[in-house]
């Protein structure tokens, strides 16, 4: 180590001499490097915008009213997507809607999210509860926890994200300040997509082919 600098020291020395002229300038980025975040409109307008953006991303957005509305919407989804197996974590919202009971009544097999990943991959439907939603882009923020692993919104071919109106955020800036202390989080906007073949938009490459966002009122 003595005769030869470690790669780390060598790189830092080269970088240091390249930008040495800036050694005295403050580390805070200049004001010109900032861009004011978007401001939210009224709650109803924001909800409308969220649903509209989800549709623009070729996703399916809707509101559901109470347990009755949720049950009906779920029955529709299960039928339309031919769902036979579903995976989801534990969440107070699911208990309020009796998600397990509803799925059982619809004849859907429930796969625990912590089971073997190939079992989760074999699920038709993965359900998540969003920790935040960005109306401007039709995006949900999913903070990864052991209870709600990343795989739920990734392996099954259909992803259903549930959003409550109190989690709507005006801009990415707000979402970042909420989650930046986490070890892992994802922003999901629509389903997995590609335009790698002749720029033709194709849904469902490695992740879900179909994205559903329901605002739970």
């Amino acid at each position: 180590m003595n005769e030869k600098l470690s790669a780390r020291e060598a790189i830092l020395a080269r970088v240091g001499s390249a930008v040495g002229a800036f050694a005295e300038t403050p580390l805070e980025p200049p004001a010109s490097a900032r861009f004011a975040p978007r401001r939210a409109a009224g709650p109803d307008a924001e909800m409308d915008l969220l649903l509209e953006e989800v549709r623009r991303l070729n996703g399916h957005g809707r509101t559901v009213q109470g347990p009755g509305g949720f049950g009906a919407a779920l029955a529709e989804l299960v039928k339309a997507q031919a769902v036979q197996k579903a995976a989801f974590s534990d969440h107070p919202l699911y208990r309020r809607y009796d998600l397990s009971g509803e799925l059982a009544r619809l004849g859907v097999e429930i796969v625990p999210p912590t089971s073997d990943r190939s079992l989760v991959a074999a699920c038709d439907l993965g359900i998540t509860v969003a920790d935040g939603a960005l109306p401007e882009t039709g995006t949900v923020l999913l903070r990864t926890t052991t209870g709600q692993p990343d795989l739920l919104s990734l392996l099954p071919r259909v992803h259903l994200a549930l959003v409550t109106p109190d989690t709507l955020l005006a801009d990415l800036h707000h979402a970042f300040s909420l989650a930046k202390g986490d070890r892992h989080f994802v922003f999901v906007s629509g389903s997995s997509r590609t335009a790698d073949i002749e720029k033709v938009l194709t849904l469902g490459v490695h992740g879900p082919k179909s994205f559903h966002l329901w605002i739970c009122l």
Partner: peptide, 26 residues
């Protein structure tokens, strides 16, 4: 993260003509 917010907006629009890329993983 303030910087990330600015750059993600520029990147998605310039790369794929979308307001945001489908997945941003942190």
């Amino acid at each position: 993260w303030e910087s990330a917010a600015v750059l993600l907006k520029l990147l998605a629009r310039s790369t794929s003509g979308s307001k945001i890329t489908a997945y941003n993983t942190c």
